[in-house]
């Protein structure tokens, strides 16, 4: 499914305008990374894309259909949203948490049935935590919790996955795990992924396209390798950086080093 934003504009109430004439698109199975310094509205943008907040101008389109004309349930059958995990008040079991992803398909008075459980189990398997089903969400690690939230989003059988800094407070290994998983999901399930992150390297690693948001409504969008350049990073993040290409087992890779502010 293709997701497209055309001429998006947003501000909070009477506040300053965060973006203007913002346009970008993701095709089926593509990954888009959104980069930008703190406070430019990366999380807000995800909420605008999904109509949790309403665009002041412009709109989001799913396969050419404007999102604001669709019913919320319809939207959330197509889009799976993975919020930043803030822990849970009630320590639901992993299975119960993942089952909540079936909500868009169930009537207000319904409870999940066996077939919903099968779908939830499949999602657990995709993210590789089928052994955690009976564990309580308060007993698992931060990395595992992130996987639970991804599994819950997959349980809505979406065509687009939107993730808010999915790897932000995880260690090296878990960051890698999440990134590779997202890459796999995009490739195998043809699910488009839209990801917020603070790490340009992560964008280089997994994304086809990149959007960098800057202060004063500036932004740049395009193919990742064209967007993530030393010049652009300097311009948008106000730091001197060096992008160093190298080869690992024959695969070309790039690393980004910040030099000075």
């Amino acid at each position: 499914m293709k997701l497209e934003v055309k001429n998006g504009e947003f501000k909070y109430g009477m506040g300053r305008t965060l973006y203007k004439n913002l346009s970008f698109s993701v095709e089926a199975g593509e990954t888009l990374t959104i980069l930008g310094p703190n406070g430019v509205g990366k999380t807000t943008l995800l909420k605008c894309i999904t109509n949790i907040y309403q665009w002041k101008q412009g709109s989001t389109y799913l396969d050419g259909k404007p999102l604001h004309d669709m019913q919320a349930v319809q939207v959330w059958k197509n889009i799976g949203y993975v919020p930043q995990s803030n822990g849970v008040v009630f320590s639901y079991s992993v299975m119960d948490m993942v089952l909540m992803g079936r909500a868009p398909y169930l009537g207000i008075f319904s409870v999940p049935a066996e077939k919903d459980r099968v779908i939830a189990e499949k999602s657990l398997a995709i993210v590789g935590i089928e052994h955690l089903g009976d564990k309580s969400c308060s007993e698992i690690s931060g990395g595992e919790m992130q996987l639970v939230l991804i599994a819950r989003a997959l349980t809505s059988e979406p065509e687009i996955l939107i993730l808010d800094e999915p790897e932000s407070h995880l260690d090296f290994k878990n960051q890698l795990l999440i990134l590779d998983l997202l890459k796999k999901i995009a490739r195998d399930q043809e699910i488009s992924c839209i990801i917020n992150t603070h790490y340009p390297e992560h964008a280089l690693r997994i994304s086809d396209k990149t959007l960098i948001l800057g202060k004063n409504k500036k932004h740049i969008f395009g193919r990742t390798e064209e967007v993530i350049t030393e010049d652009n990073l300097r311009k948008f993040f106000d730091v001197d950086v060096r992008i160093i290409p190298f080869e690992n087992r024959g695969i070309p890779m790039k690393t980004v080093v910040a030099l000075s502010g």
Partner: peptide, 27 residues
């Protein structure tokens, strides 16, 4: 009792609950 499963979702954070496609204000 009829709403029992929906209350699980209501107990999540507001935007998280919304992203599961339910009308939280109404529920």
């Amino acid at each position: 009792i009829l709403l029992r499963w929906r209350i699980n979702i209501l107990s999540l954070e507001e935007e998280e609950a919304r992203s599961l496609g339910i009308n939280i204000q109404q529920t």
